[in-house]
Structures are given as structure tokens and as C-alpha cells.
Design a protein around this nucleic acid. Structure first.
Length: 745
DNA sequence: TCTCTCACTTC
DNA sequence: TGAAGTGAGAG
């Protein structure tokens, strides 16, 4: 399906101008960097092709230099990007004929991601930062070989829930904690030509996840509060701050720009890979995930059952102890059916977990221990019937880079308004229930919006809350509501769009986190060339407040209930282009990164929106949240689930940024599915669903890597109980090996 | 739940 | 060789 939308991109240029300031984007962007008001900023000349570097009047050169120096003093490395890179004389640039590009992105190691996703991927976050595993890698195609691109990724909250791992499954444990500062990570090689990007796998393995809110690996840029494009603080860093026990969705962005300075007014093409969704944890909760990590992460080799790592030694010791105990137990109790069953369970555990029993690799172990799969299947079936009990055969542990492409999961490319958030994990999750495999569809969602028409931006609209009929609404809204928008969708993408979309949620604690709410960009230290705009977060926040206020009036009053009802109302008539207020809200949130939900809110606007707009809105929203009614998160639920449709609310022209987001909102609305609606209407239900969803995912699994945990072989309760007893005993033995050997339990 | 240390690994 | 990335496990 394709929605046609007025493309704000100026012909002959590769950048999209901010919808509100179509002809002044360059000026504003630069002014933001410089911290000057547009009116005071000398006009910047932007080459028609948009690929050229910015030309700065001599008068501006020094200020920029000074700022860069200032930034450097803050500890930000500018090794790879010298200020001169942004000060090249315009005359040296020659307009180039822009080649239309059609970026497609394929997730690398998709099969590995699928394995994790089925179990409910967990990513460890530590104070010092941990890398993601599997690593986020993509392969790009369809880029203009000569044009330069900046590739980025960020991680957004997948929903507004906090989770807990209970009874071997992830369950919603309440509302999400205040969202951490959002950041984007710019690939160190950016900017690079399309040819360069396409010639290799783009990996973001250096991005680290942390729960350290005082993370020093990032810095913030402050922009004038009244700046139309960039407002408030926009932080950059190499680590992304996440909340433990919360679900996240990584996003990949392609921006056609040859300079980071142009990000603010360039088009963001965003791609979501539902299989990369994960839950941040400070310690692994799911043994299956742990095992998968151990089996696939080279650095965890020492913990593999096969090998000489301490894990093996420990297990061997444990097994030995267990055997001793078992023998003793038998002697004491004699042989019986019960003991047999216990033995069975024991065997299962022993086989799968102890190399002593089998020295084969994990994959082999799996084969040798069918019970493993069974146990998984059983456990899974208990949790959530549906998915195939064991599809290990289907799952490959390889991290091959090919899969995604070959599997025909073409990245779905959709404009923001496509509402195709279908890519959303949740959506997929729902779909998954109906069709387990659908969830793992290779389809990648990519939304690219080049810009919103001014009309669209301003058009006040209404939003409805997500409703049980969100899907219907979504379909309607996505297709009709934003007709002006152009949606480019691959065949594969179609399903994504239809997938259920979870609503967006606002971070509960936004007010308290203003500083962090700004949509931060993670800039690789080496790449960041922006000037001295870096300032304390506080500095930038002040101004922002004012900006946001204008637009936000309507949001504050929204509550989940209202939204739900509204959504219901609109659900069927979502097509109406009127739905703005809600969108605005989402837009703001999304741009801020506050509660952007990959599914609902994300696509709607942020994906296509101009970076600048996003940044500005995010910054503004974040900073001004507490003050602005629209953004007043305090008054509203921490995270509201957005339904595509919003409550009617007046949108002042002044709130241009906010309005910009509106179009995107439609998209979000469209994707909502029953689940999303349910969420919006009933948080409680959501929690359950979410949990089940995760469970189902994980349950389906039958990875090649066998789970060695005893838990997985629950042949009989008695056996399990026995096993547990043994384990306890063994634990004691392990604690003091020497002693255990000499002393029998 | 989280933090820290440890032994182990890769690069 | 050492920095850095791992999960386990204790606290």
C-alpha cells in the first residue's frame, strides 16, 4: 500500500526541509548549533544537492570554532571531524545530480536474533556499560553510491510497562519507571558514501547499554528555547541509558547527509526490526537466554559446557556430587517408580548440563537430550499454547549474515505515516500468536518521511485513544487518514503495518527527568563535530519550555481512558485526517524519545520527521514537559498509550514543531491492534498480554542451543523436587569443593 | 534487584 | 601482553 504524501524535500536536494520552515531549515539548524536566533544568523547557503558542506560566513566561522573548542574542553573528542569539515567554502562544492535512492536494510544474523526473540531477549546493562548481544548489524542496499549518509541507531522504550520474570516468564509488573535520557548513537564511520555503507555490514557493536544515569559518556547540546527546529537539550553519547526490567526496541536510521550538522534538517529513514526487541536486565533472568548468550558470544566461551572453562569444571564437579548424592539416596530409599522418574529427570539435567555425561557441543547435547526440547515445549505450552513446541529444526544458530535477505524479509519501507508500525514487536507478537512465524518475519520496517506538508502540520486533528478495535482503526487511519503522505511499503512490509501496534506511552517520570527527556543523540566521539552548543542540560531546558507550551494544551488532559474511548470512536473512522492532537502528543513524545513506542508512536512521525524537528520537539517536550500543559506529564499518566486518535485539541501555529508530528501520528494509530487497544483501555490486561506474548515467543523456541538448566526437564514434580534438593546440596558442595569431596551430603 | 569481583575469553 | 568483554556468584 502506499500513501502519497507531499514530500517536503526540495527537488534537487537530498535534505528535507523542516515542514514549518521549509526554506530556512539550514539557517535554523545552524543557528541552533550556534545558539543564535534565526533572525540574527547570517544566511547560510546550502547547495542544491544537499550533499555539499555548509558554507559559513566568516563571521560565523569563529563562533563555531570557539564552540568546537569549548566542546573539546568538555572532553568530547573531535578527532575525526575537524571544524573545518563544516566550514568548507561553498564555492568548492559543486551541485551534483541527486540520484534517487531507495534504501533497504537487512538485519544481519537474523536467525540468531530470532532465537533470542523467541525466548524474550534480555540485554544486560551495567554501570560501566555492556554491549548488546547479539550485536546489532545491518546490511544496507539501495543507497546512492555517491551520496553520503549518516547511519544512526537508538533504543526506545517498546512500551510503558515494567516487567518481572516470574514463573519462567516475563510478566508485566506495573508501569514503567521514568524514562531515561534518550540517546542516539551515530555510527563511527559516518558520514560515508552509500557505496561504502553498502560494501560492508554496518555494525553497532560499540554501543553500550547502561543503567547509570550519571553516565559520562554522553554530552548534551543546548539550543535556544525559541528555536523553531532545535530546542532544549539534545544529548549525545556512546552509551544508551536504559531502565532495568523494561522492554526496548532498537531502531536504525539512515540519513542522507554529508555532515552531522545537517541532521537536524535531513530526512530520517527509520527501520525497526521487531526481533531485536529486548528487555534490559542487570542480571539474566531467563536461563535460556543465558545459555544462548553463552553458546553464541565468544567472550562467554568460558562458560560453555563444551570446553575447558570453569563452567564445565564446575558442572563436572556438580554432577559428580549429584551422582554421589543420588547413589546414596537410592541406597537409602531403594529403587522405585518414583526414583525412576527422578532418575529420568536427573538424567535429563545431567545430560544436558554436564559435559561429563556428554562431551559433545551444545547442539549435540540437544540432540542427545530430547527431553530438553520437550521440557521447553511443555513449559512453553503451559505458558502459552500456540507456537510449535519445538522448532529447533527450523532454528539455526548460525549468525550468518545472509538470512535476512534471503529469507525475503525485505525491509519494509514505509513512510512514517504508513502507520505500519507493523514492525512493532508487539504487533508481531500478536501476529505471532495467530501465526508464530509471522513474528519472525524478516520484514523490517523502515519508515522514511521526508517531511510533512505545512498544511498537514498545522491541521488540527483529533486523536482517539487506542481501542479494542485499534486494528481496524489502524488500517483505516494508516491508509486514509494521512493520504497526503506517501508510504512506501514492500510486500513484506504489509504485514508489519497491519500488526498490532502498542500505543505509545509517556514516561511517568518525565517531569522529573526533563533533562533526560531531550532526545539525545549518541554521537560517536570521533564524529561529533557540532560546535560548542554543548552545554549543561539545564541550560538548554529553560528555553524549551516556552516553545512546547503552545502546542501542548491538549495532551495534559489525556488519560488512558480518554484515549481509549477516543480511539474507539475513531477506530473506524480513523481515516479522518483530523486526528492531530493526539499525534502532536505522540509527536512530541516521540521526538523527545520520551515514550516513543516503536510501534505506535514511532512510525507515525518520528520516522519520517526531520531530525531537527524531532530533536527540537523532543528537547522541547522533555524540557518543558513539566510546564507545558501539552507536555505536562505529571498531570497525566507517566506513559500514555497512544492511540492513533487523539483528543481534539487546539494546536497553535506557534507550536509548529508539534504539529509536524501530527501526520505521523496517523501512522501510529493505524497499527494499533486489539492488544494495543486493550493496553490503552486496560493496563492490567496489557500486562498479561505482554507477559504472555513474551512467553509465547520464548516458548516457541527450540534453539539449537540446548538449555541446560534442570528446570527445563521437569519430567515429574517429584523428580524436580528431588533434583532441587540435590542441587541445594550440591551448591553447598560447590561452595566448598574440598569439603564436599571429603564429606558426603 | 543490583553491584561488585572473579575467572575466563577474545582481540 | 594487556585491554576489554563475558556470565557466575556472593553480598
Amino acid at each position: 500500500m502506499s500513501l502519497s504524501m507531499r514530500d517536503p524535500v526540495i527537488p534537487g536536494t537530498s535534505m528535507a526541509y523542516h515542514p514549518f520552515l521549509p526554506h530556512r531549515a539550514p539557517d535554523f539548524a545552524m543557528s541552533a548549533v550556534l545558539g543564535h536566533q534565526p533572525p540574527f544568523l547570517p544566511a547560510l547557503t546550502l547547495p542544491p544537492n544537499g550533499a555539499a558542506a555548509l558554507s559559513l560566513p566568516g563571521a560565523l566561522a569563529k563562533p563555531i570554532m570557539d564552540q568546537l573548542v569549548g566542546a573539546a574542553e568538555t572532553g568530547i573528542p573531535f578527532s575525526s571531524l575537524g571544524p573545518q569539515a563544516h566550514l568548507r567554502p561553498l564555492k568548492t562544492m559543486e551541485p551534483e545530480e541527486e540520484v534517487e535512492d531507495d534504501p533497504k536494510v537487512h538485519l544481519e544474523a537474523k536467525e540468531l536474533w530470532d532465537q533470542f526473540h523467541k525466548r524474550g531477549t534480555e540485554m544486560v546493562i551495567t554501570k560501566s556499560g555492556r554491549r548488546m548481544f547479539p550485536p546489532f548489524k545491518v546490511r544496507c542496499s539501495g543507497l546512492d553510491k555517491k551520496a553520503k549518509y549518516i547511519l544512526l541507531m537508538d533504543i526506545i522504550a517498546a512500551d510503558d510497562c515494567r516487567y518481572k520474570f516470574h514463573n519462567s516468564r516475563w510478566m508485566v509488573a506495573g508501569k514503567a519507571d521514568p524514562e531515561m535520557p534518550k540517546r542516539m548513537y551515530i555510527h563511527p564511520d559516518s558520514p560515508a558514501t552509500g557505496e561504502q555503507w553498502m560494501s560492508k555490514v554496518v555494525t553497532f557493536h560499540k554501543l553500550k547499554l547502561t543503567n547509570n544515569i550519571s553516565d559520562k559518556h554522553g554530552f548534551t547540546l543546548a539550543f535556544p528555547r525559541d528555536h523553531a527546529t532545535w530546542q532544549g537539550n539534545y544529548s549525545f553519547g556512546t552509551q544508551t541509558i536504559l531502565n532495568s526490567m523494561h522492554k526496548y526496541q532498537p531502531r536504525f536510521h539512515i540519513v542522507r547527509a554529508n555532515d552531522i550538522l545537517k541532521l537536524p534538517y535531513s530526512t530520517f529513514r527509520t527501520y525497526l526490526f521487531p526481533e531485536t526487541e529486548f528487555i534490559a536486565v542487570t542480571a539474566y533472568q531467563n536461563d535460556k537466554i543465558t545459555q544462548l548468550k553463552i553458546d553464541n558470544n565468544p567472550f562467554a566461551k568460558g562458560f560453555r559446557d563444551t570446553g575447558n572453562g570453569r563452567r564445565e569444571k564446575r558442572k563436572q564437579l556438580t554432577l559428580q556430587s549429584m551422582r554421589v548424592f543420588d547413589d546414596r539416596h537410592r541406597k537409602e530409599n531403594g529403587t522405585s517408580d518414583e526414583s525412576s522418574s527422578e532418575q529420568a529427570a536427573f538424567n535429563c539435567f545431567a545430560q544436558s548440563s554436564s559435559p561429563a555425561v556428554s562431551t559433545v557441543g551444545t547442539s549435540n547435547l540437544k540432540d542427545l537430550c530430547p527431553s530438553e526440547g520437550e521440557s521447553d515445549a511443555e513449559a512453553e505450552s503451559k505458558e502459552e499454547p500456540g507456537p510449535e513446541a519445538c522448532d529447533a529444526a527450523k532454528i539455526s544458530t548460525t549468525t550468518s549474515e545472509e538470512p535476512s535477505r534471503d529469507k525475503g524479509s525485505p525491509a519494509v519501507k514505509a513512510h512514517l505515516f504508513a502507520a505500519e508500525p507493523g514492525g512493532r514487536p508487539r504487533d508481531s507478537g500478536r501476529l505471532g500468536k495467530a501465526s508464530p512465524d509471522s513474528r519472525h518475519s524478516p520484514a523490517t520496517i523502515s519508515s522514511s518521511t521526508r517531511g510533512l506538508g505545512a498544511e498537514e502540520r498545522r491541521s488540527p486533528g483529533r486523536e482517539g485513544a487506542a481501542t479494542a478495535k485499534a486494528e481496524e482503526a489502524r488500517a483505516l487511519a494508516g491508509k486514509d487518514a494521512f493520504a497526503p503522505l506517501t508510504v512506501q511499503t514492500d510486500a513484506a512490509a504489509a504485514h508489519l503495518g497491519q500488526g498490532p501496534l502498542p500505543g505509545l506511552g509517556f514516561a511517568p517520570g518525565l517531569a522529573g527527568q526533563q533533562f533526560f527527556n531531550g532526545h539525545p543523540l549518541f554521537l560517536h566521539p570521533g564524529q561529533f563535530a557540532m560546535g560548542g552548543a554543548f552545554s549543561s542540560m539545564a541550560a538548554g531546558m529553560g528555553p524549551l519550555l516556552a516553545t512546547v507550551s503552545g502546542a501542548s494544551t491538549g495532551v495534559s488532559g489525556l488519560d488512558s481512558t480518554a484515549m481509549a474511548s477516543a480511539a474507539a470512536a475513531q477506530g473506524l473512522s480513523g481515516a479522518s485526517a483530523a486526528a492531530l492532537p493526539f499525534h502532536l502528543q505522540q509527536h512530541v513524545l516521540a521526538s523527545q524519545g520520551l515514550a516513543m513506542s516503536p510501534f505506535g508512536s514511532l512510525f507515525p512521525y518520528p520516522y519520517t520527521y526531520m531530525a531537527a524537528a524531532a530533536a527540537a520537539s523532543s528537547a522541547a517536550a522533555s524540557s518543558s514537559v513539566h510546564r507545558h500543559p501539552f507536555l505536562n506529564l505529571n498531570s497525566m499518566r507517566p506513559r500514555l498509550r497512544y492511540s492513533p486518535y487523539s483528543i481534539p485539541m487546539p494546536v497553535p501555529d506557534s507550536s509548529s514543531l508539534l504539529t509536524t508530528a501530527l501526520p505521523s501520528m496517523a501512522v501510529a494509530a493505524g497499527p494499533l491492534d486489539g492488544k494495543a487497544a486493550a493496553l490503552a483501555a486496560s493496563p492490567a490486561s496489557v500486562a498479561v498480554d505482554s507477559g504472555s506474548e513474551l512467553n509465547s515467543r520464548s516458548s516457541t523456541l527450540s534453539s539449537s542451543s540446548v538449555s541446560l538448566s534442570p528446570k527445563l526437564c521437569p519430567e515429574k514434580e517429584a523428580a524436580t523436587s528431588e533434583l532441587q534438593s540435590i542441587q541445594r546440596l550440591v551448591s553447598g558442595l560447590e561452595a566448598k569443593p574440598d569439603r564436599s569431596r571429603s564429606a558426603s551430603p
